[in-house]
Amino acid sequence: MTLRLGDIAPDFSQESTEGTIHFHDWAAGQWVVLFSHPADFTPVCTTELGYTAKLKDELARRNAKALAVSVDTLDSHGRWVADIEETQSVTLNFPILADPDRKVATLYDMIHPNSLLNLTVRTVFVIDPDHKIRLTLTYPASTGRNFNEILRVLDSLQLTDHHKVATPANWQDGDDVVIVPSLTDTEEIQRRFPKGYRALRPYLRLTPQPNK
């Protein structure tokens, strides 16, 4: 099953380190960062899970929470969590799905045989409160994920969902944004963007971030 942006993220029920997860119910109107790991006790993933635990407040500020998945068993996860907490100096504060039957991995097309045989590749899904997939990122096993980019995308998605803007290259929260080309009514532009804008081209109009 190939999942594309805008698709409804598949629902599932699966055991986790924090009990049974009924995914759509568990999401409960929040944004979800769902990210997969090839297996337990892998070095790069150990650092990623530790770093994600440190981001709990940043995610909560964005009405978001994390959910990890690995193809190993719940018993294995428990031993791995102890390693993560000791080596990364954190307390793990989000669930890790146990997926030994590959159910979640298959639903989310996380098995790429040419890369990792029957193990999950390292994919990130950002899923909105309506259960729609808004971002996918797939990393090679050797490269740790950039969680600052994941937070940046959450900021961009939440901004552009509520204002008729897009975010330019390398945008960070607080930078100027782009007025969408489809907005052409002058009075509406003035009403929506009272701080004014700079038109570099008719289709490229920069304005201060409207929610700042």
Rank of each mutant, 00 (worst) to 15 (best):
T136M: 10
V33T: 08
L157V: 12
F147D: 03
A64R: 00
K103W: 02
A39T: 02
T17G: 03
R102L: 11
R62L: 12
V71D: 02
A66C: 06
T46F: 12
T167Q: 04
D161G: 14
R145G: 02
D161A: 13
E18I: 07
L92F: 01
T167F: 06
G196L: 08
I189G: 02
L206D: 09
P208R: 05
S70F: 00
S156M: 03
P168W: 07
T20G: 07
L67P: 02
L204T: 13
Y197S: 07
H131I: 06
F23C: 06
S16N: 02
F125V: 00
G174M: 00
S182C: 11
I21S: 00
P202E: 15
D175G: 09
P100A: 09
R191L: 15
A82P: 11
E48C: 01
A28M: 06
Q88L: 10
K164I: 15
T2E: 14
D83K: 07
W171A: 05
H24V: 04
Y197F: 15
A9G: 09
K65T: 05
Q158D: 12
F23V: 01
W171E: 11
D128R: 09
F41M: 10
L49F: 06
H162L: 09
R191N: 15
R145L: 04
L92S: 00
A169D: 13
R102I: 08
L5C: 06
G19Y: 05
P113N: 08
